[in-house]
Computed example of a mutant assay.
Amino acid sequence: MAGPYASAPAKASGAGPNADALAGTRLPHLAAAAAGLRQVLAAHAVRHCPHVVEIGGAGLPITGFLTHQPASVTVIDPKIPPHEADTLNGAPCRLRHIAAKLQQVELAPPGPYALVLLGLSLKPFGRRGAVSPELLALAGSATVLVIDYARELERAQGQIGALTATRSDAPAIDLELTINDAALRAAGFHQRHLLAYGPA
């Protein structure tokens, strides 16, 4: 689909309503309530954006944490249950959870839009790199960019620099978080860094 929404592969389309879609498929290290703090912070940061794009999010998509009434929300993750709806928070919204790799989806969000990457850990797909020029262009043009990553995750450490380099503005929010959850700690993901660029 052209225009303001993502164009997804055929296998990601045609999903029917799913009562549990907004809750996501909780991964073991995201099962505790404390893990949702990142989504709460991100939802606050994007509350003025009419269009929200999240890359990742299968374990805990931002959709169910949004408090405003966006015109569109697109979440892309190969492990997310496919879902489509035409309302969110009691208002019209083009809502899609697309089960696909980022590199398989053509994104063309209108402005102003927010780009959300919580649990940054992008992987390459075929010959296409994890941090593609298209993704960097999206990050640079986003009205709001929110990134959260585990400090000990080597993959994220290798990606955060390229993403933040797309911004000429200083982050409006720059938080070091320690989430004292046993599952997150066991996974080595309890020490985190959250950045939000754009209007506070």
Rank of each mutant, 00 (worst) to 15 (best):
A35G: 03
D86L: 06
A31K: 09
L153F: 15
N18K: 05
L30W: 04
L138M: 15
P4V: 07
D181H: 13
L30Y: 01
C93P: 14
S121Y: 05
A85F: 02
A8E: 05
I76G: 06
L37N: 12
A114R: 08
A58I: 12
G126F: 02
L41M: 13
H44L: 06
L88E: 01
L175T: 10
E106H: 14
T143I: 08
F65E: 09
H97A: 02
E54G: 06
S141F: 07
P112S: 01
L22F: 00
V131G: 13
A187T: 14
V73W: 04
R47C: 11
A6T: 07
Q39E: 13
L195H: 04
V75S: 06
L135K: 07
Y197K: 05
N18C: 10
P9S: 10
A170M: 10
A156T: 07
L145A: 08
K101T: 09
A150R: 12
S7A: 03
G16M: 07
E134M: 02
S7C: 00
K123F: 13
I62S: 09
G140C: 08
V75Y: 01
P81V: 11
P109E: 03
A162V: 11
L194I: 14
P28E: 00
D86C: 06
L60V: 04
L37I: 15
G64K: 12
G24F: 00
E134A: 05
A31C: 02
E106G: 11
L122W: 10
G16F: 00
A139D: 00
A10N: 01
L175A: 00
N89M: 09
V73R: 09
Q103D: 07
R38H: 12
G14D: 11
I147Q: 08
P81L: 09
R96E: 15
V73T: 02
A33G: 03
D20V: 03
A156L: 11
A186F: 13
P50L: 10
L118Q: 12
V53P: 08
I76W: 03
V75M: 06
Y113F: 15
P70K: 07
P112W: 05
L117F: 06
A42V: 03
